[in-house]
C-alpha cells in the first residue's frame, strides 16, 4: 500500500472555490489551512462534483475539496430509514457532502457521483432556514448525515458554529453524529442541553476491516468518556449492525467493552439499526466497487430498500438490543 500512497497526489491538493464565496470568512479560514493547494475557481460546485464517469474508488485516495454555497433546499424531512428517536418534525441538513473516512458500507458511495468533499460556507442561510422553521414548530435536526461533521472540525469549524447556533433555542433539538475522535476540537465549548453528540460504534474487527481511516474503538470510547464527563448528552449508535462470521461474539465484546469503560447512567440513549440501503445506491455501489462481502451480500429488498432478510435482521437487532438491555433501560433503546 505504500506504493499506492506514493503515486497519489496528497489529499486536498486542489481546492475548488465557487465564484462568490471567495470572500466568505469561513472559506478564507479553510483556504488558509491549505497554503500549498492549487485553488481552482469554479462557477458551481456541481461542475466538479457531478462530472460524468468519476471514479469514486480511485478518488478516495486523493480527495479534493470543494468550497461552495448551497442554494435552494437547505432542510430536508428525515427519511424513513433513519431513526427519529420519538421526536416529531424530524429534519436533516447537509452543511457538507461526503466524508474523510472510507467505510465500505457507507451509502454515500452510492449516493454521490464523487468522493470529493464539499463544504458549504453560507452558514447564515442554513441558520435562517432553521430559525424560520422553529418559529412554527419544535424541530429535531440531524446535521451530520451526509458527512462526518466533527471529523472535519479542524478543516472547517462547523460543529462549533452549529452548537453555538442551537444553544438556548427551546424549539430545536440537534444531533451531531460522528465516528471521529475529534471531540477535543469542540471541548472548549460549554455543553448545550439541546445538542446530542452521537457516536457510531462498531466491533473492533468491523472498524479494522470496513471503516478505513476511521479512528479505532479505543479512541472513540476515550472521547465519549470525556464528553460525558464534561456534561454533554451522548448517544451511542449501533448502526449499521452488520452480519459476518462471528458477529454475535463481536457485538458481545463490543458492548461489554463499552460499558466497562463508560458509565451507562450517563448515556442519553442508544440506536440499533441493521444495515439497510436504498436500492439505487446499492445498485451504483455494486457497479462501481470491487467484490465486497458487504456490498455484494445477497440482501432482501423491501419497499426499495435492501437489508437482511427478516429472520436475520430480527436476530441481529434482537441480540444487540438484549446486550444493551443489560446496561440501559428499554425506553432508551431505539430500534430501526
Amino acid at each position: 500500500m505504500s506504493a499506492l500512497k506514493s503515486c497519489f497526489a496528497r489529499g486536498f491538493s486542489h481546492i475548488y472555490v465557487e465564484e462568490g464565496v471567495e470572500e466568505n470568512p469561513l472559506a478564507q479560514e479553510i483556504l488558509s489551512k491549505f497554503p500549498k493547494a492549487f485553488k481552482v475557481r469554479i462557477k458551481h460546485y456541481k461542475d466538479v462534483f457531478c462530472r460524468p464517469r468519476q471514479n469514486f474508488l480511485v478518488q478516495e485516495s486523493s480527495r479534493k475539496l470543494i468550497i461552495a454555497a448551497k442554494r435552494g433546499e437547505l432542510l430536508y424531512p428525515g427519511p424513513d430509514v433513519c431513526q427519529d428517536f420519538g421526536n416529531e418534525n424530524f429534519y436533516y441538513t447537509s452543511p457538507a457532502l461526503n466524508c474523510i473516512y472510507s467505510c465500505e458500507y457507507c451509502y454515500l458511495k452510492g449516493m454521490h457521483p464523487s468522493a470529493n468533499l464539499v463544504i458549504f460556507v453560507n452558514l447564515e442561510d442554513f441558520f435562517k432556514k432553521v430559525e424560520d422553521l422553529i418559529k412554527q414548530k419544535p424541530v429535531y435536526l440531524s446535521i451530520s448525515y451526509e458527512t462526518d461533521l466533527l471529523a472535519l472540525e479542524n478543516i472547517a469549524p462547523l460543529s462549533a458554529a452549529w452548537i453555538e447556533f442551537a444553544r438556548g433555542k427551546e424549539n430545536l433539538k440537534m444531533e451531531i453524529r460522528t465516528k471521529s475522535a475529534n471531540y477535543p476540537a469542540i471541548r472548549h465549548l460549554k455543553p448545550a442541553d439541546n445538542v446530542i453528540l452521537a457516536w457510531t460504534l462498531s466491533p473492533a474487527e468491523v472498524i479494522k476491516k470496513y471503516e478505513k481511516n476511521a479512528p479505532p474503538l479505543e479512541l472513540r470510547l476515550r472521547q465519549i468518556k470525556k464528553a460525558l464527563g464534561d456534561g454533554w448528552k451522548v448517544r451511542l449508535c449501533f448502526d449499521p449492525v452488520l452480519y459476518f462470521e462471528g458477529w454475535e461474539k463481536a457485538y458481545e465484546d463490543l458492548i461489554g467493552r463499552i460499558f466497562s469503560e463508560i458509565p451507562a447512567c450517563g448515556i442519553n440513549d442508544a440506536s440499533v439499526g441493521a444495515f439497510r440501503i436504498p436500492r439505487e445506491y446499492l445498485k451504483r455501489m455494486r457497479k462501481n466497487f470491487p467484490p465486497s462481502e458487504i456490498i455484494h451480500y445477497p440482501y432482501a429488498e423491501r419497499g426499495g430498500v435492501y437489508t437482511y432478510d427478516e429472520k436475520l435482521k430480527g436476530e441481529l437487532l434482537g441480540k444487540v438490543r438484549s446486550l444493551l438491555k443489560e446496561h440501559l433501560p428499554e425506553e432508551k433503546i431505539f430500534l430501526t
Binding site: C7, F8, A9, V40, I42, R51, S62
Partner: peptide, 18 residues
Amino acid sequence: KIIYHDTGRAFYPDILVK
C-alpha cells in the same frame, strides 16, 4: 481547468496522481 472561451464553459480533469 480548461475553459472554452466562446461559451465560458469549463472542464475539470481529475488530477489524482503526483
